[in-house]
Structure formats: structure tokens, C-alpha cells
């Protein structure tokens, strides 16, 4: 049985939904943060690590997450893994910013 990201030839897939949306500022920002961290100038992480973290998501979470939700999850995962951030400080900051606004 192939893993959740390994989609090629997976049965049960329906027609391709061709509708598109303009990326929100938040999605672009997630993209930019990941790209900066992976850039040759910084090399805080590798694209391969980003992919590995996405692939390691719970299959159900992978399936239902939006594209950049997966990316953000992966950035958080790898930054915690590398000791750059901790889960606690991320959650604290989320609450703090929510309260401020």
C-alpha cells in the first residue's frame, strides 16, 4: 500500500477540478517563508525535508488540508525538529497574537 502522498495511479480519483483561486497573502507568505528557509543563502532547511514532513502527516490530515496548510505544518515540524522553535513557543505566540487583535 503506497503512502498518502504517492498518488500516481491511485484508484478512485475523480475528474480534475479546474477552478483556480488567487493565492491569499497568507498563502504567499507561507510560500515565501519556506522558500527563504530553504534558499542557498540560508539553508536552514532543505526542500527534501519539507517534503518529508508533508509526507509524514496523518493520511486523513494530508487529504483534507489545503496546500499551504501542509507547507506550514511542515515548516513548523522541521523548525521544531532542528531546535529552532519549540511547540510551546509556537502555541504561545499564536495565542498572544490572537489576543492582541
Amino acid at each position: 500500500m503506497s503512502r498518502v502522498h504517492d498518488r500516481g495511479g491511485r484508484p478512485g480519483a475523480g475528474p480534475v477540478d479546474k477552478s483556480e483561486h488567487d493565492l491569499s497573502w497568507w498563502e504567499k507568505r507561507t510560500d515565501a517563508i519556506a522558500m527563504l528557509l530553504m534558499s542557498p543563502q540560508k539553508r536552514v532547511m532543505r526542500v527534501d525535508e519539507l517534503r518529508r514532513a508533508i509526507e509524514s502527516m496523518e493520511p486523513a490530515a494530508y487529504e483534507k488540508s489545503k496546500y499551504y496548510e501542509r507547507w506550514l505544518h511542515a515548516v513548523e515540524t522541521i523548525m521544531v525538529e532542528k531546535g529552532v522553535l519549540t511547540r510551546e513557543e509556537i502555541e504561545r505566540k499564536v495565542k498572544e497574537l490572537a489576543a492582541r487583535r
Binding site: S2, R3, D6, G8, G9, D48, R51, R52, E55
Partner: peptide, 11 residues
Amino acid sequence: SPPRHFRTPTY
């Protein structure tokens, strides 16, 4: 199907 990242799709 090693329990790590790999780039060779199952199919």
C-alpha cells in the same frame, strides 16, 4: 517502501 523519504513512486 523504506520508512523514510524516497522519490520512486510505487506505481
